[in-house]
Design a binder for these strands. Structure first.
Length: 502
RNA sequence: UCCCCGAUAGCUCAAUUGGUAGAGCGAGCGGCUGUUAACCGCUAGGUCGUAGGUUCGAGUCCUACUCGGGGAGCCA
């Protein structure tokens, strides 16, 4: 922003002085001889107070009719006022209207998901999306900072690739001058060749998966950071991951307390999230899922949900019984809004009540050898107050490149990191198979074309070393930290299965 | 791909057992010197998602389709 304009985030340094702000009208209220214009400038919100007589009469009338999101510059004196948002406000002396806006579709009232996604290009201006955007920025900055400060070298891996990293079915195919190529699912395989040059590397960019998943934790295009380290073991990887995540959280707490508060995130719980995290093996996790402890936990949860449901229903019927004639219009309005909110929560509670026995059944009958399902992860995640590592999954359930445990060939040296309180997986990682012949066998078992992996096998022929790494999903991390139900809020322009808005 | 729920004004939602369509917000006009989703008064605004069917009569019941939401499988 131009130097002639002061930004809202540094108003406290200009107390008593005259400044000019440049931004957009977030909302306005008028009260006869005084108007309150809430200005948004990208760094924050500021209430600008326009008093009749302190500005030209014509301007005062013009401002009364100025629409939401009109662009303008406001000149005035900065003063502290407790009644004002952020503690400071502007006593206005002059306003320049740059471009008046009329009929801005996103009003300060509530809107539905579909409507907001259709207006994503405008919704980015709202407080909610702004706070998430600021936190996402901090998360990405922390990711780069941590890795750069710890000796990792950035390697840009290709977005167009011939090799399959994860599942064949979930590849986006593109026509590359007549022959097929795929959008990358992971930079890992290329990263493994770079790690033999630099020792510690990472890649960071968009990743594409054509999974037919319509859930709150899936996007078809998402951002993932993948560190890869040579001469490391599984314990070393876990330590790296927990220090990494702890650092990201510390940075967000340091830079974005206000945003976290606005979003109603669980700051107390984030403050507790420091290394070491919990460590469970897959086998231990299966034992927990099948145990009486889980049965009791879910039964308790069900009871609590039913309690909640009853309380909600009581409250709803009480509100519905309110005598219509006795109360003022604004009270009716408030009650109506509350009812909508309560009914939404009630529907959610019903879904949870419905799912609880299904999840209990799935957990109780879990057989060793299957991959953990979403509900299983959620249960484990809900039982803990800090992130949980789950390690040593069965070989059959996992990707071909994961290194088999030499002490137990049935399992691989891998790990998932589950965020607590039901958020679920944010990291997946493993040691990589570094034995040439074992890797050839795995590629054949997975029916992959060995021709495509010749270069990858070379890494096991010329000075193979134990190495491993992991991928951290940026949107999932942001969703966890900001307490968002759906990760589509955590990327500016989400790409979902069969649905791209703008 | 499967299961559940939904679609009524620009937005968020009402409409008893089937009986001629309602409110708030937003928009427009007016009032109010301290508002915080301000408040008060007036005005405009609708082919009830689409196509069939049942009925004297359908926003309401039935069928199909379209779109959206939630969940499952799979995953970061």
């Amino acid at each position: 922003m131009d130097d002639q304009y002061t930004t809202i985030n540094c108003l406290s340094q200009h107390q008593g002085k005259e400044v000019t702000l440049a931004g957009w009208l977030y909302k306005g209220r008028s009260s006869g001889k005084v108007q309150f214009l809430v200005l948004r400038d990208g760094t924050g919100l500021c209430q600008c107070v326009v008093e009749k007589g302190k500005v030209p009469g014509e301007l005062f009338e013009q401002l009364k009719h100025l629409g939401q999101e009109s662009s303008l510059t406001v000149t005035g004196t900065v003063r502290a006022d407790e009644r004002s948002l952020g503690g400071y406000e502007l006593a206005v002396t002059d306003v320049q209207i740059i471009s008046p806006a009329d009929g801005y579709p996103i009003t300060p009232k509530s809107h539905g998901v579909d409507f907001l996604l259709k207006h994503r290009h405008l919704h980015l201006r709202s407080q909610h999306q702004w706070c998430i955007g600021k936190i996402r920025h901090t998360v990405i900055d922390a990711i780069r900072r941590f890795l750069n400060d710890n000796g990792f070298v950035l390697i840009d891996t290709p977005i167009l690739t011939a090799t399959v990293g994860e599942e064949q079915q979930s590849l986006f195919e593109v026509d590359y001058f007549g022959s097929p190529l795929y959008l990358t699912q992971t930079g890992q395989l290329h990263l493994e060749s770079a790690v033999m040059s630099f020792g510690k590397v990472y890649c960071f960019g968009p990743t594409f998966r054509a999974e037919k998943s319509k859930t709150r934790r899936h996007l078809t295009e998402f951002w993932m950071v993948e560190p890869e380290v040579a001469f490391i073991d599984l314990d070393g990887l876990l330590e790296l991951a927990e220090n990494f995540v702890s650092f990201i959280i510390a940075q967000v707490l340091q830079n974005n307390k206000n945003e976290l508060e606005t979003l109603d995130a669980d700051i107390t719980s984030l403050e507790k999230t420091k290394a070491p995290f919990y460590r469970l093996t897959y086998t231990e996790t299966v034992d927990i899922l099948r145990s009486r402890r889980t049965r009791d936990f879910l039964a308790g949860q069900l009871k609590e949900l039913q309690n909640q449901k009853q309380q909600l229903e009581t409250k709803i019927s009480e509100l519905e019984k309110q005598p219509a004639s006795q109360i003022k219009q604004w009270q009716k309005d408030k009650i109506a809004a509350e009812l909508i909110e309560l009914r939404t929560v009630l529907t959610e509670t019903d879904t949870k009540i419905e799912n609880n026995p299904k999840h209990a059944e799935l957990a109780g009958e879990f057989r060793w050898g299957k991959d953990l399902g979403g509900s299983d992860e959620t249960i484990i995640s809900q039982m803990h107050d800090k992130p949980i590592f789950v390690t040593h999954y069965p070989k059959e359930a996992k990707a071909f490149y994961m290194k088999a445990d030499r002490d137990n060939e049935k399992v691989v040296l891998n790990f998932d990191l589950l965020a607590p309180a039901g958020f679920g997986e944010i990291i997946g990682g493993s040691m990589r198979e570094d034995d040439h012949d074992l890797l050839v066998a795995r590629i054949n078992e997975h029916d992959l074309d060995i021709e495509n992996y010749k270069w990858y096998l070379d890494l096991r022929k010329y000075g193979s070393v134990p190495h491993g790494g992991f991928g951290l999903g940026v949107e999932r991390t942001v969703a966890w930290l900001t307490a968002q139900k759906h990760i589509r809020q955590c990327i500016p322009f989400p790409r979902m299965m069969d649905k791209v808005y703008i």
